[in-house]
Design a protein around this nucleic acid. Structure first.
Length: 363
DNA sequence: TACATACAC
DNA sequence: CATGGTGTATGTA
């Protein structure tokens, strides 16, 4: 609804945050203007040469396209909010969100009807929905629930990989195969994969009293998109056939692809690319206007050809540790900053311990 | 190498 | 009144 946008706009206008955001948007607009200028300078020959180059890349990607795996993306529905609703029945039928007055982590579906969303400040949430109940985060509880979810996932793929507390990827290809050997019935592999995922979701629900949605496809990129299709408490299966994948992607908004965010989707929109299918049609421009790295990921998004793993590759270890806090306006004095800095330093592991830790991590 | 930007959750 | 924190990847000076 347009009203929602108006309320947010009105609540934000004039604030520092708003001005900063506007300034950043102007920079993006400027970049897009320059991009379009460059675009207009291309000759048809240049574009068709670029298309040919993309076609070569496409052939390569098609060559290595792997349709042999069943990758599953599991995504818990409104996770933090669902945990709170489970534990506090009085919250079950009211619009509520988890977070604080300054930031909401997630909202339940009742609150979403009012436009209350994750990453929205609580005070704006309350403008959109005066009855909104905001409950503080309780990460210990969410971690505990996540542990239970992971117990279930591990039974379907011991090598599953979590992205965050509420979502993860599995490769159930082997599990499907063994299940096909053992049990009879003239069930296809596709049906078996879907049955297993339905079963897994039911087990998650039984163990946690929380619902999960899931996507099943040939690779992680597609599975993630699919898990969003029938949310909440649903699943979506995308057949592992090139034709089905291309048909599915043709009309899919580029913004749904993980990795295509606010800025890139604006740039693409300026090129009249809003659907994944259009990434292929306009591949010449993509080639001429974006970095090699982006070219590749956009082509992948158009083709649905992603490397098949689930992230859990050989030496995947955390690469950095950091901390960051925003000071309230009144406490932003040299003295308080200094004392904050002191506390960071004193809570940082001493060098020998840090080295040991680094050794541990690098293994 | 350092710093800035984009992105995800 | 008022808009987060952690981590990864990539681009640029």
């Amino acid at each position: 609804m347009i009203q929602i946008f108006q309320i947010i706009e009105e609540a934000s206008r004039g604030s520092k945050f708003y001005n900063h955001k506007k300034q950043r948007q102007e920079k993006i607009d400027e970049r897009i203007r320059r991009m379009l200028e460059l675009k207009d300078s291309f000759t048809p020959e240049q574009v068709s040469r670029a298309e040919a180059q993309m076609d070569a890349l496409t052939a390569q990607l098609e060559q290595s396209r792997d349709l042999s795996r069943f990758i599953v993306h599991v995504d818990m529905d409104a996770f933090y909010a669902a945990v709170e609703m489970r534990d506090r029945p009085e919250l079950r039928d009211v619009p509520m969100a988890v977070g604080s007055n300054s930031m909401l982590s997630t909202s339940n579906y009742a609150a979403r009807k009012f436009g209350v969303r994750a990453a929205m400040p609580g005070f704006i949430g309350r403008k959109l929905c005066p009855q909104l109940v905001i409950v503080p985060c309780d990460f210990d509880k969410y971690r505990a629930a996540s542990q239970l979810v992971q117990q279930v996932m591990a039974r379907y793929d011991p090598d599953f990989s979590m992205v965050s507390l509420d979502e993860g990827y599995l490769d159930i290809t082997d599990r499907v195969a063994t299940e096909m050997d053992g049990d009879t019935g003239d069930q296809s592999e596709d049906e078996m994969a879907q049955r297993l995922v339905r079963e897994m979701r039911a087990e998650i629900c039984r163990l946690t009293r929380l619902t999960a949605s899931a996507g099943i496809a040939a690779n992680g990129m597609l599975a993630k998109i699919c898990s969003d299709q029938n949310k909440p408490d649903g699943q979506f299966f995308l057949p592992r056939e090139r034709r089905a994948v291309l048909d599915f992607l043709r009309e899919l908004p580029v913004r749904k692809v993980s990795g295509i965010g606010n800025v890139l989707s604006q740039q693409l929109a300026a090129l009249e690319v809003t659907r994944c299918g259009e990434l292929l049609e306009r591949r010449g421009l993509v080639r001429l206007l974006f970095s090699e790295c982006i070219q590749l990921s956009l082509l992948r998004a158009g083709l649905g050809a992603d490397p098949p793993g689930v992230g859990r590759d050989e030496d995947s270890h955390q690469k950095s540790v950091s901390t960051e806090t925003t000071f309230a306006g009144h406490s932003r004095t040299p003295r308080s900053c200094r004392s904050y800095w002191e506390s960071c330093v004193s809570s940082c592991p001493k060098t020998s311990a840090a080295r040991a830790c680094a050794d541990g991590l690098s293994r």
